[in-house]
Amino acid sequence: MSRHRLGGARPAAALIIAGALLLAACGSDDGDDAAGSSGTSGGGGGDATWTMVTDQAGLGDKGFNDLAYAGLEAAAEDLGGEAVVIESSEQAQYVPNLEQAVADGSSLTVGVGFLITDAIAEVAQAHTDSSFLLIDAVAADADGEPLPNVASVTFKEQEAAYLAGIIAGETTESDTIGFVGGQEIPPVVRFLKGFEAGVASVNPDVTVEVSYVGAFDDSQKAKELAAGFYDGGADLVFEVAGLGGLGVFEEAQSRGEGFWVVGTDTCKQDLAPDNFLTSATKDVAGVVERTAQAVDDGSFEGGAITEGLAEDAVGVCEDTFGDLPTEVQDAVEAAREEIASGALEVPAE
């Protein structure tokens, strides 16, 4: 377990990191704060403690752990109090780390990732007066009912990935694309299915080949899988591998121009400027900050929450969107409008 305490007045370096991630994430502050049958009382202000328990990938994944961190930092600055990050290096640490957050009086405890779901459910049911936020899954009781003290937020990753798939399908010249996933869990599958559908909508001749690392923190294995795809004729790889995805960027960059990579969660053009095509993004930072605001003003409610294009919670990297050919931008915008309006339903499984 690694533990960091960060006061409401952020250090300059952390401010830069969080600011960059907030700008990179696709979304707005207008989404739903929470939904459900009941909630806990407010507990923000200068005495608040905003706590995040990471998954095994931890900070530095250039993905949703870092985005959640940015949202936590923003909450501490905007609402006051202290931001605390507890890093987990293995799944066995999830419950003890969450229990530690509650014992320390956390105003909101954020659990990051599908793999922490069971731990959140266990700890939340043991501490019904505490407020939790779970990213990428739903914490439920034995009857399958979402817990009232956990805001369980899932994203329509398939919608973001569909847009990324349009860009990829219009870009590939080899008509072979690789997909490197961390593990075959629901959020990763949603990325894959939406991406496949987006590619097929503009280029039905493309073959999407799929491999899984088996973990979200193994960048070397992800790099090897990407190399295999490129060696086999792919000119583009879509990574949904958490911290491991950094290995895909490393492999693409080592090969030079013409070998593309599509990222996830946030813009990652700094990792391989000549190879980055786009990212399928999620507004994790915004969700964390909005949920903290709800705790602060007493409006927090638990339950299952799903956000997608209609809520401006997912999308593609806006930092580089203007660099795409006009016809590709037009195709993405048309699909974005169809999906947000409900006219087009993207497959999730």
Rank of each mutant, 00 (worst) to 15 (best):
N203T: 09
D205Q: 11
V206H: 03
E209T: 15
E209L: 12
E209M: 10
F216M: 05
D218W: 00
Q220Y: 09
K221S: 12
A222D: 05
E224Y: 04
F229I: 09
G232V: 09
G232H: 09
D235T: 11
L236N: 11
E239V: 11
V240S: 06
G242R: 00
V248S: 00
S254R: 07
R255K: 14
E257T: 15
E257P: 05
V261P: 03
V261M: 02
V262A: 10
V262S: 10
T264Y: 02
T264N: 13
D265H: 09
D265E: 14
K268H: 06
K268A: 13
D270F: 13
D270Q: 14
D270Y: 13
D270E: 14
A272M: 11
D274K: 12
D274I: 11
A285L: 09
A285M: 06
V288F: 02
A292L: 06
A292D: 08
Q293H: 08
A294N: 03
V295G: 08
D296V: 07
D297I: 12
G298P: 03
S299W: 04
G303D: 02
A304I: 02
I305V: 15
T306Y: 00
E307K: 11
G308E: 11
L309A: 14
A310C: 06
E311D: 15
E311G: 04
C317I: 06
F321H: 03
G322Q: 10
G322F: 08
D323Y: 06
L324K: 05
T326R: 09
V328C: 04
A331L: 11
A335P: 03
A335W: 03
I339Q: 06
S341I: 07
